[in-house]
Write a protein that binds this DNA or RNA. Structure first.
Lengths: 203, 203
DNA sequence: TCAAAACTCGAGTAGTCACTCGACTTTTCG
DNA sequence: CGAAAAGTCGAGTGACTACTCGAGTTTTGA
């Protein structure tokens, strides 16, 4: 990640506080994009929340689209990219439900994801590639885990791992949208658990 | 729908071509919002596609938000609002799959829905109420149909109709997003059929 | 036939947008 | 220390936004 390459380029390092200022910008941008989306959010709003001028913001992130990508990658570094369960002992069900409950508790995480994911299918949206690749990666990852469970006889007969992988991701995303619009009417973790109970057989 | 009420208000009817001009605007706006979203789409773009000035457009739809709501309601009049199967003889499975294939074939329908649905969870979005109410209505409708199937013993034991209703809608929406980003990698109808095969028992 | 409503549109208006420029201050590191 | 990079920001830039105004043209319906 760091740009320490090249023979003798860039003889100076950043200020001591640079990293935390970048972080302040990311935090502010996360909130703004979550609340208003990419197109609806303004750099001025981000700069105000981060406590600096818009010009200074652009010193750290030279364009709005690069700021968006930085926010998306930062989100991944917090919540994980969804593919690798941190604890190899943890079952697929537990990992999914734990992540779902985590997302429910941290404000803004679901808003950002849902809003940008919808926006990303529009023409020329800078987040489009991010979401395309994310879905591809997630489908492969879940399909692999389901195939392994199938090998252990834990998959209900007739269930196709690839279809179930795409369906699990789709269900997860879709239930998030419903939950954001009516938090009291939808049980996110319950829906995910119910689906996995259908797909998987008891041990 | 028509505004023929009131004692003697509005003594003049619209021009003969007004209805088709309104329709041209709706068609253009549908395409613009589908391609760029509500915030990313401009009235100028809509007016250009409809072949008129922006001022004339605003004569028919006095604000951008009212245009959006008109587009959403028009979409419902075309695709149906998803609750009532046109043919009472048609099974739930057949109705879902037929609608899914229809949406797949008509360009722009899914784009509009997916983009606006994501955007709608942002602050102050004029489509928020539309989607909130739509989800509420759909959940009730599918839950009722699943309850009826449960009464006929067609529901797999342990499946909760309300949970399955929300899950079916969520799965549907989520798989649309994946399909729009990678049409070749996802089988929309296949995922829906697979889910319904899990939830329902063969007759 | 004809007044008045329906319609059309060029020309604004005030605002916001992402982004640039250039001058200034602050910090790093040899 | 001191040179130079890193960081800061006020003041633009031009483009675009939704929307208004007013004046002209077209159509309707009695």
């Amino acid at each position: 990640m760091s740009t320490k390459e090249g023979p003798q380029t860039s003889r100076r390092g950043p200020y001591a506080k640079s990293a935390e200022r970048r972080q302040a910008i990311l935090t502010a941008a996360h909130a703004v994009f979550a609340a208003h989306g990419y197109r609806g959010g303004s750099l001025q709003d981000v700069a105000n929340r981060a406590g600096m001028s818009q010009t200074s913001l652009l010193h750290y992130f030279p364009s709005k689209s690069q700021l968006l990508l930085a926010v998306l990658n930062w989100r991944d570094s917090i919540t994980g990219d969804g593919t690798v369960p941190p604890d190899p002992e943890e079952s697929l069900v537990d990992a999914v439900l734990r992540q779902a409950r985590f997302n429910e508790d941290v404000p803004g995480v679901l808003e950002l994801y849902t809003v940008l994911c919808g926006e990303a299918v529009t023409e020329g949206h800078p987040g489009r590639d991010y979401f395309t690749e994310r879905f591809e990666r997630l489908r492969r990852s879940y399909a692999r885990q389901l195939e392994q469970l199938a090998g252990e006889g834990r998959l209900r007969p007739g269930v196709d791992p690839a279809t179930a992988a795409a369906s699990l991701i789709a269900l997860w995303d879709g239930i998030q949208t419903q939950w954001l619009l009516a938090p009291g009417s939808v049980d996110m973790a319950g829906c995910l658990r119910a689906y996995l109970d259908l797909v998987l057989l008891p041990e």
